[in-house]
Simulated scan of single mutants.
Amino acid sequence: MVVHPGGLMSDVEKLLSALEEELWRANRDGDGPAYDRLLRRDALLVSRFGTAGKEQIVPLIEANHNPFVRSELSGQQVRLLSPDSALVTYRVDYTARTDQGDVDHAALATTVYSREDDAWRVVLHQQTPL
């Protein structure tokens, strides 16, 4: 997380860090409505599986076929790009439940947020497997 002189984070930085945690929680819980609320209509997600838009991601989260049973974020950094846009980067270590058993993964993640009507929403989320 961004640390400012005196060690204080802005309210926006705290909120965006909390939203990242909320998205991973929603992924673990199969909470499609949370993704529907937090992703912009034209959001794009990029991962080792390819690219997908909100219309593909929300049903996949709701189906929860390979749930994440653990996710740990570390090294979060928040960069405010403008009063209404921001970038969040971090490492995530997570475990996915598969038919073959639990599988551990690690990735570097970047999420771009846009604030519209006083709500922050995901524009882009990208993961690079480690």
Rank of each mutant, 00 (worst) to 15 (best):
D11S: 01
I57S: 11
T111Y: 01
Y90F: 15
L130V: 06
L45Y: 02
K14I: 08
A96T: 15
D99H: 10
T51R: 13
R79F: 10
V58T: 07
V103N: 02
R48C: 11
A26C: 10
S17G: 09
T128N: 02
D29I: 00
Y35C: 11
M1P: 06
S85Y: 00
L60T: 13
R37A: 11
Q126A: 12
S47N: 06
P5N: 06
D117Y: 04
D36H: 09
K54C: 06
L108I: 09
A34L: 11
L38F: 11
L19D: 05
T98K: 04
E62K: 12
D102F: 05
G101K: 06
V12G: 04
R28P: 01
V92M: 01
S17Q: 10
E72R: 15
D117P: 08
T95P: 10
V46R: 03
Y35I: 12
H65G: 03
N64F: 06
V88W: 01
R79K: 14
E72L: 14
G7T: 00
D104S: 00
D99F: 05
R25F: 10
P5K: 01
P129W: 09
K54I: 07
E62N: 13
S82N: 05
Y113S: 04
A96F: 08
D36T: 08
D42A: 13
R41F: 11
V88Y: 10
V3I: 13
Q77I: 10
F68W: 15
D11L: 07
L16I: 01
Y90L: 02
V112D: 04
D42W: 04
A119S: 05
D11H: 07
V12W: 01
E55Y: 09
G50R: 14
V78W: 04
M9D: 08
V2P: 08
R28Y: 03
S71W: 06
R37K: 14
R37W: 00
A63I: 07
D29S: 06
A106W: 10
S10A: 07
F49R: 15
E55D: 15
A63P: 04
L80K: 07
V2W: 02
R28C: 14
H105W: 02
Y90R: 03
V123T: 11
E20I: 09
R91I: 09
G32K: 05
Q77A: 13
F49G: 14
T51K: 12
M9F: 01
